[in-house]
Design a protein around this nucleic acid. Structure first.
Length: 280
DNA sequence: GATATCAAGCGTCAGGTCGG
DNA sequence: CCGACCTGACGCTTGATATC
């Protein structure tokens, strides 16, 4: 809607308000041209309030799908979506699945096994399994692998207990000398000491009781903020994906209703011709 | 080739909603 | 009531296309 409100911005309304226009179109067609409210009646403030109270796209689309057969539901989990490879969905109940900035999926199973899935690969071949040496019940206060991210040099990083960083070398080209020789297409991993500045999106878990100095408190606050931003980043992505799906659904519904409308008009014309034959 | 414009997407913030 | 989640709004970047 804000492209109506902000005259200086001429962005395409797809992302921000196109769905609102589509909703109107669907409603207008569905009402078969009866007493459609003019757009100008509702001022922008009211519209903003109304839209801000609208339930989520998932709910709306699911309600739509219950009304109209054939309308796909938005799944609670994006298991069959293009984003998640099917091999992850069929895994044996992993405790956590993370997606890196490069599209890789890292699943941490309950047994401590880390499985990494490349988005380009299909089937189980894309999975590489790492078994953590401390698999099983972690000791109290242990730091668990929390997140993976791509650092500036294009490597995949995640963290393991002991404040060490496991780094996946890119295309195994940079395998260091202290590591076992890389074999075939298997990615190589190396243990590095953590850098002072965490890469963007990387969050390290720490036991709350271990905070002492103001510096540590500040670090904790920074960590919490990073975690919150990361979650919100993912939530925004997911929200936009749902919105696109919702808009697609509305567009297809518009098409169906337009066809129905056309058919009904034709039927009406036919009936008119039958009921009022020409006198000539 | 340089510049302008547009479309699409992203990250972040703020505020609302919802479930425990 | 509180924390987690959802989503509109805003500003920014990037790639494509048009215009000069």
């Amino acid at each position: 809607m804000w492209w109506h409100q902000h005259n200086l911005c001429f962005r395409h309304p797809v992302e921000e308000d196109y769905s609102g226009d589509l909703e109107k179109k669907v409603a207008t067609i569905a009402e078969t041209d009866e007493s459609a409210e003019s757009e100008g009646v509702i001022d922008s403030h009211k519209r903003r309030e109304i839209l801000s109270r609208r339930p989520s796209y998932r709910k709306i689309l699911n309600e739509l799908s219950s009304d109209v057969p054939g309308v796909p539901k938005i799944e609670e989990e994006k298991s069959e979506e293009e984003g998640t490879p099917p091999n992850i969905a069929t895994m044996a109940v992993p405790t956590s699945i993370y997606q890196t900035s490069t599209g890789q999926y890292i699943a941490i199973a309950q047994g401590g096994t880390i499985q990494i899935s490349n988005p380009g690969s299909d089937g189980v071949q894309g999975l590489q399994a790492l078994t953590m040496t401390n698999s099983g019940a972690p000791p109290p206060g242990a730091t668990i692998v929390q997140y993976a991210a791509q650092s500036a040099d294009g490597t995949q990083q995640f963290f393991v207990p002991g404040s060490q960083v496991v780094v996946q070398d890119e295309e195994t080209e940079l395998a260091p000398s202290h590591m076992a020789a890389a074999t075939g297409d298997m990615p190589t991993y190396q243990i590095r000491a953590p850098t002072t500045a965490l890469p963007q999106g990387v969050v390290m878990a720490a036991s709350p009781g271990s905070l002492h100095s103001p510096q540590q408190l500040a670090e904790e606050a920074t960590r919490k903020r990073e975690l919150r931003l990361m979650k919100n980043r993912e939530a925004a992505k997911e929200c936009r994906r749902r919105k696109k799906e919702y808009v697609k659904c509305l567009e297809s519904r518009v098409a169906v209703l337009e066809v129905q409308n056309k058919k009904l008009i034709e039927e009406l014309e036919t009936l008119k011709d039958i009921c009022s034959p020409k006198t000539d």
